[in-house]
Design a protein around this nucleic acid. Structure first.
Lengths: 159, 159
DNA sequence: CGTGAAAGTCACCTAGT
DNA sequence: ACTAGGTGACTTTCACG
């Protein structure tokens, strides 16, 4: 799945374009990077099978969906493996959860959540998290603003 | 752009399917949710124009791209607006940056970065961040594991 | 690795029920 | 909302440099 595929500059250009707009047609993509459509399709499929391209995701607006409050929750818990696994599963199953990270450091988990309201955030923290015995601390930090990074490319990528 | 569009259960089903695979054809999508293709296209376009659907993004593997080290950087800085804006721009322009968040709390920024190596991470922190005068503190936390949340849906969504 | 052609599919528009 | 027809663009395969 995660082969180390060799990527030339054309592959990188494809990745760059697709990360900006994944719904571009293969023809347009091929024209943009300067190769034939069939060749372009080959390259995309190879990167897909090679694990470089994981999938195509819809980007939705949390605000437009009625979840205007975003926050990071830092969670400290007991370090027994089976507790951590089931805790992670519980966090991921919450509808507010957008992403979950297991961290090295004082805090064990970092969760990005999108909540309907401050009250919903409070309920999430108190009723779903701090009530669990394996959790020793939860800290909530509101997100003022969120930016996505540019296209992710290999180190040393030029063109 | 961010109208409050009314979404019925069919719209939610569309969002759910598209968040799993945004490259599905409109015909397949329509068949999956049980409506006609033309209607389905209408609904998707309406959600796109209504700001619910922001775009279609390629999901790439940082490891497969040669960036196996992921970390969160928490940054404290001086709070003058123009300093924060230019600092945010500088952080976003780094090739390691995957996402940037402006926070309410002791820390001003949280950055998710994907680095080539620990040395690269060190260079990023020291040469690009702590050297800047407006930054007062940077804390680095390694990411052991990352999970994406399920599809993001409106509060109270059932089917 | 690249191309061009050909077949099948799809998006998209229009109009009618 | 669905159906149906029609056009042009698209994906995908294949034989071939």
């Amino acid at each position: 799945m995660a082969d180390n595929l060799r990527l030339d500059s054309t592959d990188l250009e494809i990745l760059r374009v697709l990360q900006n707009d994944a719904r571009i047609t293969n023809r347009e993509l091929a024209a943009t990077v300067g190769i034939a459509a069939s060749t372009c399709l080959d390259r995309v499929n190879r990167m897909r099978e090679g694990g470089v391209i994981l999938g195509y995701r819809l980007q939705v607006s949390p605000e437009a969906l009625g979840r205007p409050i975003q926050a990071f929750l830092t969670i400290r818990a007991q370090h027994r493996r089976e507790l951590l696994a089931s805790l992670a599963e519980h966090i991921r199953s919450q509808p507010e959860t957008r992403a979950l990270y297991h961290l090295a450091g004082r805090d064990d988990f970092l969760v990005l959540v999108a909540a309907e309201s401050v009250a919903d955030l409070q309920r999430l923290v108190i009723d779903e998290l701090t009530c669990r015995p394996e959790i020793t601390q939860v800290q909530t930090t509101l997100v003022f603003q969120e930016w996505e990074g540019g296209p992710l490319l290999p180190p040393g990528a030029r063109a």
